[in-house]
Design a protein around this nucleic acid. Structure first.
Length: 564
DNA sequence: GCCGTTTTCGGCCCGACTGTTTTCAGTCG
């Protein structure tokens, strides 16, 4: 409701600062990672940044009545299609208002008709060019909405950066934007380079073989669409501004705003060119990110934290988390072999894991009920355990841990009897069916599974598949609390479509004392590399080394498993 | 409407680009 109010008020032409206040509040509420009703119950609404007396009152009204009078009233006077118009590129609130007042345009369809009939160019302030841009905007506006998975963006950007690095004119180069922050979905790919000769770089970039279409080509900025549809923006700045530009292009937008507000209070000004004194405009930083943050009295902030979710305040107090690193990871907790629906033999997986420098790996095939994934019968599981023990005798430098991804059946019971679970090193429990159960049912179901003393990990706790399946509804607070209490770890599933738990829930769960494991859910050797995605989620969830079981050495992990 | 390492009142990030109304408003990131 707040978001919609923002759009309606923009078109209405309300006070911009009031609108921005709503916007800020809406964004922070969206990123809570906790049920707002719980916060309201504790009477702590105003502890949410950007939520003051006014917004708190509105939230209380919504929670109490399910409605917001102010919103309903606003909406009544609004044609339903009008808000969509500002989602067309080139059309903002002012233009939308003008088009509505003068031409009665109240939907994208109306807009297209009017543009094609050349009615727009006759309006005061608009012209033929704008009319043309609007038509183009309508064309691409559908496509723009699609965001790609982090995994896809990473696979696309790496070869491009490698190509660019080969150019002698390129000095420094980095990914930027939401990709560098490792958000789970990416709109378009941003790359930043520094050079004193941007022209040559631009030219080489737009002629890369992967490029299908050149969207814009300038002196220091070009945009292309690749053959697979991804949009890539490349920007070149002078070496002395690289750090400031990297801060700026990495974002997030709200992080940048807060940084600049902070600067202002210190009589400084931050832009993509550097940090300047307000008086006299003397440049005092810009070459590196460290320099930029330092000039504001802050330590360098890892990109994954730059979401204006308290990282600046934490940095100010020198309380930033020491985020877990990929190199801290000693093993993978969730791998499938060709005993169930995986592609590779346990021996090959073990060798690949050893080559990655791991100390251990958990082979966790599906359980008997999951026929679609060739779940293992009791008989086969016994055989598999035996085989792994034999394999470990001949294997140096890595230990294969016996595991299973055991189905949590719809009544909350497990798909294997206790006696065989007790034989396994690691028991992972997960839901693979009955997603449509009620929130209460699903929550109770998982809690019941957590009541089994052999369970070590709950895998992909919300079951989502980005782009294909919504997360199922569970009472996070109850599950996090129980996980904290029992020390049953929650998985950060690193499969590209899953990333489940997600960053927000990870951060929330940590506050309950929850431990986590990263598992790639790999079904083929190349997917072992996805551990990196899991580490990104962990970092975005503010996790430190100690929060993850994956960082334990083999002996420490074995101690942990015994203790449980 | 929110907020306080200037402030309980008076501010609220910064700059590029575009097109059009020739000096700047609107949009975008």
């Amino acid at each position: 409701m707040l978001w919609e109010m923002v759009e309606m008020l923009e078109i209405k032409g309300a006070n911009l600062f009031r609108i921005r206040a709503f916007q800020k509040a809406a964004q922070n509420i969206e990123n809570l990672g906790e049920d707002i009703a719980q916060i309201a119950k504790r009477g702590e609404l105003q502890s949410i940044p950007g939520v003051g007396k006014g917004v708190a009152k509105r939230i209380e009204e919504i929670l109490k009545t399910g409605k917001l009078k102010e919103y309903e009233k606003l909406k009544k006077g609004f044609p339903p299609g009008l808000m969509q118009i500002i989602s067309v590129p080139e059309v903002g609130p002012k233009t939308a208002r003008l088009l509505y007042d003068k031409l009665g345009i109240k939907s994208i369809k109306d807009l297209e008709k009017a543009a094609k009939a050349h009615k727009i160019q006759s309006l005061f302030g608009l012209g033929a060019k704008i009319e043309e841009n609007i038509l183009h905007g309508i064309e691409i506006h559908q496509e723009l909405k699609k965001r790609m998975l982090l995994f896809e963006a990473l696979s696309a950007v790496r070869p491009i950066i490698e190509d660019l690095k080969r150019l002698p004119e390129v000095r420094l180069i980095s990914e930027a934007g939401s990709l560098r922050r490792r958000k789970e979905t990416i709109g378009d790919i941003d790359i930043l380079t520094s050079s004193t000769r941007p022209g040559t770089i631009m030219k080489a970039f737009i002629h890369f073989p992967e490029v299908k279409e050149i969207l814009a080509k300038g002196l220091t900025k070009s945009s292309v669409r690749l053959k697979d549809g991804l949009q890539v923006d490349l920007r070149v700045v002078k070496p002395g501004s690289f750090g400031a530009a990297l801060v700026y292009f990495t974002g997030s937008k709200s992080h940048n705003i807060k940084i600049r507000e902070l600067a202002k209070k210190k009589k400084l000004k931050v832009s993509e060119y550097g940090v300047f004194r307000s008086k006299g405009n003397k440049k005092i930083a810009g070459k590196t990110e460290e320099e930029v943050y330092k000039s504001l009295g802050l330590p360098w902030i890892p990109p994954e934290l730059r979401e204006d979710q308290g990282e600046i305040e934490a940095a100010f107090k020198n309380q930033l988390p020491r985020l877990v690193k990929l190199s801290d990871i000693q093993g993978d907790f969730h791998v499938h072999s060709n005993w169930s629906d995986g592609a590779d033999s346990i021996e090959d997986i073990a060798k690949a894991a050893r080559a990655k420098g791991y100390q251990y790996i958990v082979i966790a095939d599906h359980s008997q009920s999951l026929k679609v994934a060739r779940g293992l019968s009791l008989e086969n599981l016994k055989k598999k355990i035996h085989l792994i023990h034999k394999l470990n005798n001949n294997l140096k430098g890595l230990k294969v841990l016996t595991g299973a991804e055991v189905d949590i059946k719809s009544d909350g019971s497990l798909d294997y009897p206790d006696w065989i679970l007790s034989e396994l090193d690691v028991v992972i429990a997960a839901i693979h069916s009955g997603f449509k159960q009620s929130r209460d049912q699903l929550t109770t179901r998982i809690l019941k599974a957590m009541g089994n003393k052999y369970v070590d990990i709950i895998a992909h706790p919300t079951g989502r598949l980005m782009g294909a399946r919504e997360p199922y509804e569970i009472d996070f607070d109850k599950i996090f609390k129980q996980a904290g209490l029992t020390q049953i770890a929650l998985e950060i599933n690193a499969f590209p479509q899953r990333l489940d738990l997600n960053d927000l829930n990870v951060r929330r769960a940590k506050k309950f004392g929850v431990k986590f494991t990263i598992g790639t859910d790999a079904h083929i050797l190349t997917q072992l590399a996805n551990i990196e995605l899991g580490v990104s989620v962990a970092r975005r969830g503010w996790l430190e080394k100690n929060d993850l079981l994956n960082t334990l050495s083999l002996p420490d992990l074995q101690k942990w498993l015994k203790k449980k």
